[in-house]
Each structure stands twice: as C-alpha cells, then as structure tokens.
Simulated assay, not measured.
Amino acid sequence: MSKSKKLISKDGNTLLFDAEKCLGCGLCVDICNDIRGAIRLIYPTQILDKIKIKHDDKQCGACGWCAINCPFGALEFRINGDKVEVVDTYVPEAAIQREVNVRLETCMCCKQCEAVCPRGAIKVSGKIRVTSNECTHCGFCKNSCPTRAISFVEKKVEIDADSCIRCGVCELSCPIGLIKMSCLDCLLCLGNTFHAEKKSNLQVDGIVNIDKDKCIYCGLCELNCPTQSIQVTKPFKGHISIKKANCPNDCTTCIDSCPCGAIEKRENVTVINKDACIYCGTCHRVCPSKAMDFERDEVAMVDSNGDLIWYIKH
C-alpha cells in the first residue's frame, strides 16, 4: 500500500504527494510555474526508482491548484483534514477533465477491458441469462462448465460473469445451440456477431467498476472493447515521435518506464502506439539519448458549466 508524503501544511491547508501514483507528466510544475514556481520533479536514474518531488515551502501558498488538477491523483489537497476535489475560491473556473464512461446497455461482460488494463483498474461482474423459451433445462451446459459459472434461475440459464472464462464449453454442450459464447480472442473479431446474438437470445446485466485511484486514462479499454461500449477522455493531447538515428537498438528505457505499455520493440525498432499514449512525457524525460521528440499541446478542461473544453498551449 502506497504512503503519501506531506509536502506542506499551512493555515489548515495540507498538500500530500504519493510517488506510487506519479507518472511524471509535469502538469503540476507547469501550473505552479504560472503562480509561484514551488514544485520541481526529479526523475529516476534507475528504472524501478520512483519519481521524487522537490517542494519549496517558502514559495508554496498551499492553494491546492496543483493537486486538484493532477490527472493521476498523485497530489492530494486537504482543508482541515478533508480531501478536496474542487474549491471555487482556490482555482480558476476550469479543472482538468479525465473520464471513463461505460454504456452498460451494450456491454456484454466479455472482460476484455479488464484483461488489457495495465493498472488492474477495471473489475467486471454481472449475470448473463439465456432468454429463449426453447431451453429444455437439460443441464448439459451447467454440468460441463469447468468453473461452475452456470446455474438455473427461474428455469432460465444464468451465467456468472465473475466466474465465466469464455472457454465456450457451454456453447459446445448445448444440444440445440441456444448458448452463444466466445473466447476472448474470438471476441476481437466476432464481437459484432456475438452482439447480435446477445440482443436476440441473451440478457446481459453487467457492472463495470473502475478504480479511479488506479486508472491512468490510457484508453486501452476503449480500443479493445468489441461493442464500443467504453469512451475515455484523456487528460492530454500532443505529439510524440522517435528520432531513430538517436535511438540505440539495445535500449529499452522508454519501454520499461511507459505506464500504459504504449511503447514496444518491433523487429528491433522502437515504436509507439499513439492510440494508447497518454502524453505524460515520462519516456521523453528518462530517455538517455534524447531520442524522443515530445510536446503536450492541449489539456482537457471542464468549465464551470460542466462542458469539456481543450486548453491549447501557446
């Protein structure tokens, strides 16, 4: 369990820092530079080391602006011991926006989002029911299920999404072909077919819990959802590229440090999955050969009316 470090406590206002959650995006530094210049980040020289924060108590006014706008919850602001999300008297009329929305009416509890989340922030649960009246209650599906995920509720087949591993044994064992389940690999290519079957023959009551303390809004869940039931608002936009002439083939520093697994080696060449990149800038800061060309151009903000706006960096 991570522990937060107290940076300052002034007039009942307290600022805390959790190195376990810090991804090194540097937004706190940018924000504070416009106000007091009290924060500086120190990046590790070893891959497994944590990012450290250097804080100037004399310059800091304990306003909480840095913490309220930290996209990953590494900075925490408290007033008289109570955690604060937004305080109108302390911050401008806009705050950093980052969000994950799940459309449960189209979710089929396939758990693909849970499987690809690099931070283990997603937990899918729920029930899948076979609604067809043609079921003869033979019990073949229930008896063949290796995880005992199937039961009969009010004479209907009910599949526990928590226990189901999408092995497809129930589908194979059903003598009249009422159950249409697929493995995770097949869902990526047969998602639309499965979804059509689900509408006519299956009732899915799913719950998708997202731990916002762990979520880094990388969008991998959205990219891998076969029914497009997830929408992610990333906190940043920007551009990033690799200067291949400067990038050594045997170096994996950026790959090891990327919090969302957006960088990999392909045929001994370092490549970036820009769809998964959150433009935190960690790779740029830790690259020993300065091979990363990185710029964060826009920051997602929500105004006082709750509308999403993009602050463009000039």
Rank of each mutant, 00 (worst) to 15 (best):
K3S: 08
I8Y: 05
S9E: 15
S9C: 08
K10Y: 05
N13S: 07
L16E: 09
L16F: 09
F17K: 06
E20N: 11
C25T: 02
C25P: 03
G26E: 00
R36Q: 14
A38F: 04
I42A: 08
I42M: 02
T45C: 15
Q46K: 14
I53M: 12
K54E: 13
D56F: 13
D56V: 03
D56A: 08
D57A: 11
G61F: 04
A62W: 07
C66T: 04
G73W: 09
E76D: 09
R78F: 10
D82A: 01
E85F: 06
V87Y: 13
V91L: 14
E93F: 04
A94D: 06
A95P: 00
I96Q: 04
I96D: 00
R98C: 06
L104V: 03
E105N: 14
M108L: 06
C110T: 13
K111R: 12
E114Y: 11
A115V: 07
V116H: 12
I122R: 08
T131D: 04
N133S: 14
N133T: 12
T136R: 14
G139E: 02
F140K: 10
N143R: 03
P146S: 02
R148V: 06
A149P: 07
F152T: 08
K155I: 00
V157L: 14
I159C: 13
D160F: 09
C164I: 10
C167E: 02
C167H: 03
E171D: 15
P175T: 12
I176R: 11
K180I: 08
K180C: 05
L184F: 04
L187Y: 15
G191Y: 05
N192R: 13
A196I: 11
E197F: 15
E197M: 09
K199C: 07
S200V: 00
V204L: 02
V208G: 02
D213N: 15
K214Y: 12
K214G: 05
K214F: 14
I216Y: 05
E222I: 04
N224Q: 15
P226E: 04
I230H: 08
T233S: 07
I240K: 01
I240Q: 05
K243D: 04
A245C: 00
N246H: 11
P248A: 05
N249I: 05
N249L: 09
T252M: 01
T253C: 13
D256Y: 08
G261S: 12
I263Y: 01
K265S: 07
K265M: 09
I272S: 07
N273H: 07
D275R: 03
A276K: 03
Y279S: 00
R285W: 00
V286R: 06
C287S: 05
P288F: 11
A291T: 01
V299H: 01
S304C: 01
S304R: 15
N305M: 06
N305S: 15
W310M: 07
I312A: 05
H314A: 13
H314Q: 09
